[in-house]
Amino acid sequence: MAHTPFQVEILTPDGSVFDDAVEMVSTRTTVGEIGVLANHAPLLAMLEPTELRLYVGEGEPLRFAQSEGYIQVGGNRAMLLVAEMHRPSELDAGALRERLGELERELAGAERDGEWRGAALREQRRLQAFLRVAERPAAAR
């Protein structure tokens, strides 16, 4: 697949993670999976925790674990604002599994108010997404 490259920038509170030309961005919004190519219509959407894939050229795409955030497309550029963005190699599957287990036990046991539950469910989704990225071997996509 040879698409026209366009500029993509990924910003987190800890700085810029990626700023380069790619052919396609593949991620997930609250509405569903999307792939963004060059000359996409202007868009502002909320991102869900998932695996972000950047198709730079031929071969394997760059993979990232993405937490909640926003994507803004306009003027043939895409900007992703996310709270956290990690390369799969930076993730520790064991630690993630442990935290997910803890959280699920808390969720099952506690009878807390709706707000806490909402935050915990969001954290659960983030951990699940990160865990999936951490466990998937790069070759078997």
Partner: peptide
């Protein structure tokens, strides 16, 4: 980065979901 849209473009931005 100067990716902020111009005012005339803003009306065309697709929001997913609603603003």
């Amino acid at each position: 980065p100067s990716s902020g849209e111009e005012p005339k473009q803003r009306a065309l931005v697709e929001y997913e979901p609603d603003p």
